[in-house]
């Protein structure tokens, strides 16, 4: 016969089974995966991934994303230049999609993850006005959408490969893909059990 407080129940990050939090060495009763509980370094791993992502975001914005070679002349455009160009062309919806996916989404993710990581180690954690579980859910939801620009460049580079016009991927595409990759890793490494007092 067990008797547990509902606060002591946690869900397995892999199979979502409800488990009793034994404080250390939690192993999911259903799938056998480790349910992390790093006592000494709870947020460091996630911080490391997040900072890496932020560092890669700088070259992603400074270098050209896409280079157009037309009749011998080359012209590269960064993410922001690409958005402005589309806007001036009158392609407002597409300009907005790229703006949101490549600029707003990564920055929003940086801010939300940094907020989560800072707040769980601080007295801010007792602030229950903002449901941090929802913030985390939101970062996971919007995260992958910043890949749109990388895919678009990939498609255009594969498609426009003619003698007169050629589109080549720029250095920023690698940096940007790495940014997205590391923000996704940072979100995965975040231990949601650090969030307290929201149930």
């Amino acid at each position: 016969m067990y008797s547990v407080e509902s606060d002591e129940l946690i869900s397995c990050p892999v199979c979502e089974a409800v488990n009793i939090d034994k404080r250390q060495n939690n192993i999911c009763r259903r799938c056998g995966s480790k349910i992390y509980h790093h006592r000494s370094t709870p947020t460091e791993k996630s911080w490391a991934y997040l900072l890496t992502a932020m560092i890669f975001y700088v070259p992603a914005n400074l270098y050209p994303m896409m280079i157009i070679e037309q009749f011998g002349s080359e012209s590269g455009s960064t993410i922001l230049e690409g958005v402005i160009e589309l806007w001036n062309h009158g392609d407002y919806p597409i300009a907005l999609i790229i703006l949101v996916a490549s600029i707003f989404v990564p920055i929003a993710k940086f801010i939300m993850l940094a907020y989560l990581l800072i707040s769980v180690r601080n007295p801010l954690n007792n602030n229950t006005k903002i449901n941090k579980h929802k913030v985390y859910y939101f970062t996971e939801l919007i995260g992958p959408w910043s890949m749109v620009d990388v895919f678009v460049v990939g498609i255009l580079a594969g498609l426009v490969h003619l003698s007169s016009v050629k589109i080549v991927a720029g250095a920023a595409s690698t940096a940007f893909a790495l940014t997205v990759f590391f923000t996704l890793l940072a979100a995965h490494a975040f231990d949601t059990k650090l969030i307290r007092g929201s149930r």
Partner: peptide
């Protein structure tokens, strides 16, 4: 809230919402 269980497997009847983490 206290929950009485006969075995750990009875926890299968519970779900933690993955968005807002309510039980």
């Amino acid at each position: 809230m206290k929950i009485e269980l006969n075995s750990e497997d009875e926890l299968d009847a519970y779900i933690i919402c993955h968005k807002c983490h309510t039980l």
